[in-house]
Amino acid sequence: MSRPLPRGGTFLLAVVAGTAIANNYALQPALTTVAADLDVPLSVIGLVPTAALAGCTAGFALLLPLTDHLAPNRLVAAQLTALAVALTLAATAPGPAVLLAAYLLAGAAASVAAQASNIAGRHAPPGRGGTGVAVVAAGMSAGILLSRLAGGALTDALGWRRMLLVFAVIALLGAAAAVTLLPRHRPPARGGYLATLRALPPLLLKHRRLRLAVATGALWYLAFNLVWIALALALAGPPHSLGPTAIGLYSLAGLLGFAVLPLTGRLTDRYGPRTVITGAVLAAAAGTGLLATGLDTPWVTALGLAVLDAGCFAAQAANQSRVIALDPARSGSLSSVYLVVYFTVGALGAAAAAPLLDAFGWPATALTALAALLLAAGLTRR
């Protein structure tokens, strides 16, 4: 049986998760600024979010299973230190090749956010796993939502390079706190690391509920990335022509998701994850339907984003609780399989956003996301 986290441990994990995962999104409002500074087409710099998600996927495949083998304090501190190094490399990048490589590394290190969620669920008191995961998910949602606002504001104030260095310092502070406060004991031995990696693919064949969790989660994350990347690009261009800070302000609409996550954890522990996931995905679909009506009315755009984000974050917290509960002793491996597929499909959504927006416009892009969400809702009830 896992030892409980020390006092304040779950809160620290939430902060670590939020500040780490924020680095996958903080540069998005400044993509046009980065493209102009490096004198390359926006289509090239538009690959930065995809590189971050691809790196995160690699981190989930290769690093998340380490939660079944290493002490939480050492593992979390090491990854946050690596994140700081990658962000420093990105901040000094002379061209797009180095920037993309740095974001691959930063994305991999940012997978510590998933490790934090896994540690919180594994070390929660009996019957409170959903609440522990939801608290960390709240930290992640705050990081994702506020990252665009912070990234845009810091870019306007300091430039995009210094903005990245600010995030690097935050990562180092998190590493120092993790070494001091997180558990120092290793999980019970369950074979070697390489054996753990080889055993990952068969887990999908063994667990039908894992397959359903993977399919539904991947669909709503595809929709989430499709909407947010296309939204940033659409608002930056005519007729809106908004700057990085103005685009980043729309992320505040997603604070509704942050507010509902503690309730999500309690509902998941009481009623089970499937009921929570179904309601959350349908709410996200309703928000996307609002966004499909256009971006000309700011309050409608803000409301649509609020409901979309709340639904996706609530569904993700409940889904991760479902995955961890399949086998808590192997939760790192199970979460690895889940999140590799989740972020792979999400990266496809990020990569498809600009081409879809250019070819078909904003309403069709939003309707594509809506179709993915409705399919996810249908699969949840199987």
Results as ranks from 00 to 15, higher is better:
Met1Tyr: 01
Ser2Tyr: 00
Arg3Val: 12
Gly8Glu: 00
Leu12Cys: 01
Val16His: 00
Val16Arg: 03
Gly18Lys: 09
Thr19Ile: 13
Asn24Thr: 14
Gln28Glu: 01
Val48Leu: 15
Ala51Val: 11
Gly55Ile: 09
Gly59Thr: 08
Ala78Val: 12
Gln79Gly: 11
Ala84Leu: 09
Thr88Asn: 00
Ala93Ser: 15
Ala97Glu: 12
Val98Asp: 06
Leu99Ile: 12
Leu100Arg: 05
Asn118Arg: 09
Ala120Gln: 04
Ala134Pro: 11
Ala134Leu: 10
Gly143Cys: 12
Leu146Thr: 09
Gly151Asn: 10
Thr155Lys: 03
Arg161Lys: 13
Arg162Pro: 05
Val166Lys: 11
Val166Glu: 07
Ala168Val: 05
Ala168Met: 10
Val169Arg: 09
Ala178Ile: 02
Thr180Tyr: 01
Arg186Tyr: 00
Ala189Pro: 10
Leu203Arg: 15
Leu205Trp: 11
Leu205Met: 04
Lys206Tyr: 03
Leu210Ile: 09
Arg211Lys: 10
Ala215Glu: 07
Leu226His: 04
Gly248Ile: 06
Tyr250Lys: 03
Leu252Ser: 05
Leu256Gln: 04
Gly257Asn: 09
Pro262His: 09
Leu263Arg: 14
Arg270Gln: 13
Tyr271Ser: 14
Arg274Phe: 05
Val276Cys: 10
Val276His: 09
Gly279Gln: 01
Ala285Asn: 01
Thr288Met: 07
Leu291Arg: 09
Leu291Glu: 06
Leu291Ile: 11
Ala302Gly: 11
Ala310His: 10
Phe313Glu: 04
Ala318Gly: 09
Ser321Tyr: 05
Ile324Gly: 03
Ala329Asp: 14
Val337Asp: 02
Tyr338Trp: 10
Phe343Asp: 05
Val345Met: 01
Ala347Val: 12
Gly349Gln: 11
Ala351Tyr: 14
Leu356His: 07
Pro363Asn: 03
Thr365Asn: 10
Ala366Asn: 02
Leu374Met: 04
Ala377Trp: 01
Leu379Ala: 04
Arg381Ala: 13
